[in-house]
Structures are given as C-alpha cells and as structure tokens.
C-alpha cells in the first residue's frame, strides 16, 4: 500500500470514529473508554512482528515485553468492559 492509500484509510476512519462516538450514549462513556483501551492494544500486531522476527535479540525481547503488556490490556480491557456492560439493566425484573 502506498502512503496516500494508507492516509485515506486513516482520514476516513477518523470520520467514522467521529460519527460512531457521538452516537454512544453518555451512560456508556466509561465502558467506551475501557473498550477503546482494549482495541487500541491492536498494537500487539507490531509487538508480535518484533517478537517473531529473527535478527535482533534486543528487538525480540522488546517485542515480547510489548506482547505481554498489550495482552494485559486486551484481556483485561475486554473482560472489564463485559463485566460493566453486564450490570446495565432495565427496570422491572426484581424491583417491580
């Protein structure tokens, strides 16, 4: 992919992000932060490339540490989001 193609994806994704995030209900702003946190750990892709490559041992170890850090975030972020979302309930059920 050349630079302009990548830039196009980026700019369009910014617009998508803008509209999608404005449609998020304010009540879910905390889960929004924790889930964006989890998905921004997609940086693990870069970490995996570094950790998988032969060549520089230092780079490999930096990559492995980055994989571990990003994994904390991925598993922790999605799990805590799921835990929060499970708490949002509608009326009736037990109180009625």
């Amino acid at each position: 992919m050349d630079f302009i193609a990548i830039l196009s994806i980026f700019v369009l994704a910014c617009f998508v992000g803008y509209f999608v995030v404005w449609s998020v209900t304010p009540a879910l702003h905390t889960p929004l932060m924790s889930v964006t946190n989890a998905i921004s750990s997609v940086i693990v892709v870069g970490a995996l490339i570094a950790a998988a490559a032969a060549g520089s041992p230092t780079a490999k170890w930096l990559g492995l540490v980055a994989v571990a850090l990003a994994s904390v975030n991925i598993f922790g972020g999605f799990a805590v989001t799921a835990r929060m979302l499970a708490m949002y309930k509608k009326k009736e059920r037990r109180d009625a």
Binding site: I9, C14, T36, S40, I49
Partner: peptide, 16 residues
C-alpha cells in the same frame, strides 16, 4: 506497518 486494522483502530480511539 501499513496495517489497516491498526490505522482504523487508532483513528477510532483517537477520535473517541
């Protein structure tokens, strides 16, 4: 990395 998943996510999280 020329990685569209990372770019899309970065843009989403950044704008969020």
């Amino acid at each position: 990395l020329h990685n569209s998943a990372m770019i899309i996510t970065g843009a989403l999280v950044g704008s969020s």
